[in-house]
Design a protein around this nucleic acid. Structure first.
Lengths: 229, 229
DNA sequence: TCCTATTTTGGTCAAGTGTCCTAAATTTGG
DNA sequence: CCAAATTTAGGACACTTGACCAAAATAGGA
């Protein structure tokens, strides 16, 4: 099983060893507050208190709150990306089984407090902060990569663009479960059933979907401009 | 086409006509700020400024910010519920066409600024506010009702519980598109293609899914406790 | 018109926020 | 062990926030 580290930070702050650990300690505390009490409650003083240090000490490592949040976000994103890369570079099963396994892995991760509480925050912040928006986009591009690798094997007839939209649909479908079957959500007990439905439905989708299905509601054209068949 | 009114408020505040309009004016302004600048920026003073009135005047109608936010949420939820009810009580098409039409309607609504910016906020607030959590849950129960009505027609073999989980999967899948193909999101231009994929995939899912598929990953039992066949 | 209930103003209050600064304490390499 | 670099403490600053209150202005029915 793949486990997601909480944070993966390439911290440049601190030349003494104490400074290194302190810098990560601050980000860990900030993440805890973010998950447990929301972005509203994330203040420099609260972070300092959680670390048992002084406000001035926090600002020594992260002069502005904006910088702290950005470093935190980058660390979080990096930890997810590392996991995705590990999965993608693991050549084991048949494509269909790989596809189903990844879906189940993502649905399992959704059930963690970290993912259930963090990602809606990121989606919200993305709407009004371009820096966060760009980082989150990068993360999802990386997350979809594995689907973009597998779909051409399962359904060679699709064009590149069609495949990317299908990969987006699969990924977004899974993300949509977060608010309903995530950590302590009403449908969390039914996650095993949801996994079964998602595995069957999404695998069937990528295997049998055709350009006719995809462009059924496209207003201006009945098919793609270019086909690579 | 069904249009979603911005707010549907059963305001009890104000006995004079001026008070009635003022109370709605305040909620409208609050919603605008919430959509345009996020919950962070939603302050009593900013609301007052947007209405061109005094801070004290806002607190006269909504003594606490908490009360204002709750009234706003109830009004927003009510506006969506009214729309869902209208759709459900509209007996027009064949079940399959109804199913596809509802999916497309929801995906269209996702593309509005209101829905794209409001719902991630609600999901976030739900994680740390039980009042908001309960209201949002109510809203989604109402939203899934139409799927729970249609699925038994399209697939009579499912038990009540299986049908409800399938309805959840369909609804959650659609919601998941919000962050990727919503208002001004990267995949918004591909929404027509996503509609085609969703319509084909989700209709196929509800028509062909079996208990064997659903319980494929359920650890303790191979099938439901009770079948209503 | 007048009188009462409602609406609006303008201000104060304490609490909390991010940022900045100086001096003390601590760590580390030579 | 010492000196330089780093880390920490503590405080101050200007600012925003939600809540509160008394008095003035307005609205609407009699």
């Amino acid at each position: 099983m793949y486990s997601m580290p909480r944070l993966k930070l390439r911290s440049n702050s601190g030349s003494y060893s104490k400074g290194q650990t302190r810098a990560t300690e601050i980000l860990e505390a900030a993440l805890d507050i973010l998950l447990d009490h929301g972005y509203q409650s994330l203040s420099m003083r609260r972070i300092a208190a959680a670390c048992g240090i002084t406000l001035g000490n926090v600002t020594y490592y992260y002069p502005t709150k904006d910088q702290l949040v950005r470093d935190l976000l980058e660390s979080v994103v990096q930890s997810y990306m590392d996991t995705f890369d590990a999965i993608r570079n693991d050549p084991t099963m048949a494509p269909e089984d790989q596809f189903v396994t990844v879906i189940r892995l993502l649905l399992e991760d959704i059930q963690t407090k970290k993912t259930t509480h963090l990602f809606p925050q990121l989606w919200t912040l993305s709407n009004h902060d371009s820096f966060i928006s760009e980082r989150v986009d990068e993360l999802y591009v990386n997350a979809r990569q594995i689907f973009n690798d597998l779909i051409p094997i399962l359904n060679p007839a699709l064009t590149d663009h069609e495949r990317e939209v299908v990969a987006l649909f699969v990924s977004a479908s899974i993300e949509g479960m977060t608010m309903f079957a995530g950590y302590e959500k009403p449908w969390a007990p039914d996650m095993p059933l949801i996994e079964g439905i998602a595995a069957k439905s999404l695998l069937e989708c990528v295997k049998t979907i055709t350009a006719d299905d995809i462009y059924r509601f496209a207003p201006d054209r009945k098919g793609p401009v270019l086909r690579n068949s």
